[in-house]
Simulated assay, not measured.
Amino acid sequence: MTIDSLKQSQLMSKEISDLIISHEKVAHVQLQNPLDHALLILIKSGYTAIPVLDNDFRVRGQISKNEILDSILGLERLEIERLHDITVETVMKNKIPRLKTDATFAKALTTSINHPFICIEDEKTSFVGILTRSSILALVNRYFQQ
């Protein structure tokens, strides 16, 4: 085994724990929040999508600007007045990428291909934070620069 292949193997088997953005720093909403609140959080944070959590701090899905705008799209105009009457739970995506805290970098890299972020959960399925595609790419870039 060459030094390069050994380094590559070490990178791919590395745990993702060092790359996780802690839940305290992650913008999120809850299931029963109205869409106007979710849209405000999305706009203020600058993100296009954020996690949706339940009262037990478990990930239930994600909400994006696209889902919100689709839900108020009328035949001839945006029905903005509906934003306060619709809850996050009714329009969020339920199937989202998730990994456990001990997942390998290889699994995270594969999962991140089609997703800007991955929700990270502990062994009790409580929300720990997120892993962004940009943090994964930054590590890959550092690897190739060495």
Rank of each mutant, 00 (worst) to 15 (best):
I16L: 06
T2G: 14
K25A: 14
S22A: 13
H23F: 14
L75D: 13
E79Y: 12
A49D: 08
G129H: 01
N94A: 13
S22N: 14
K65W: 05
I118M: 10
E121T: 02
R77K: 14
R133I: 03
Q8S: 12
K14S: 15
V140K: 01
G61F: 13
E89V: 07
P116S: 11
S45Y: 07
F127C: 05
T101F: 04
L39D: 09
R98L: 15
H23M: 11
D85K: 09
E79T: 14
V88E: 12
K44M: 00
A38F: 00
L53R: 00
Q62L: 13
I41M: 04
K25P: 06
E121L: 08
A106M: 06
K7F: 09
L6E: 12
L69C: 01
D36I: 10
S112P: 06
K14H: 13
I72L: 07
P97C: 10
I16K: 08
D70N: 15
S5I: 14
T48C: 05
I20D: 00
A103M: 01
L19N: 02
E67R: 00
N55M: 15
T132I: 07
Q62V: 09
V59L: 14
L6M: 06
D36R: 01
L139E: 04
E123A: 05
G46A: 05
S135C: 03
S13C: 06
I118W: 06
T111C: 09
R77W: 12
S45N: 05
Q10G: 08
I68Y: 00
I20L: 04
I21P: 07
Q30V: 04
I21Q: 13
T101K: 03
L139C: 05
T87H: 07
K65Q: 14
D36V: 09
I41G: 01
E89G: 13
E121F: 01
D18S: 10
K25M: 14
L39P: 05
F57R: 00
I20M: 00
M92E: 01
A103V: 03
T90L: 13
I20K: 04
H37I: 07
F144T: 04
C119Q: 08
S45L: 01
F127G: 10
V91H: 06
K44C: 05
T110Y: 15
I63V: 14
I72K: 11
K95W: 11
L35S: 03
S71L: 05
D122Q: 06
R77M: 05
L137E: 02
V29H: 02
H84C: 08
Q146G: 11
P97I: 10
K93T: 12
N33R: 02
D18Q: 09
I86C: 04
K65G: 07
I16Y: 03
G46C: 04
R133H: 13
S64Q: 08
Q146A: 11
T2L: 02
P34E: 10
L139H: 00
M12P: 04
K65L: 09
I43A: 03
A108H: 01
I21T: 12
A106L: 11
T48K: 05
K93W: 08
Q62W: 13
L83D: 10
I21Y: 02
N114W: 09
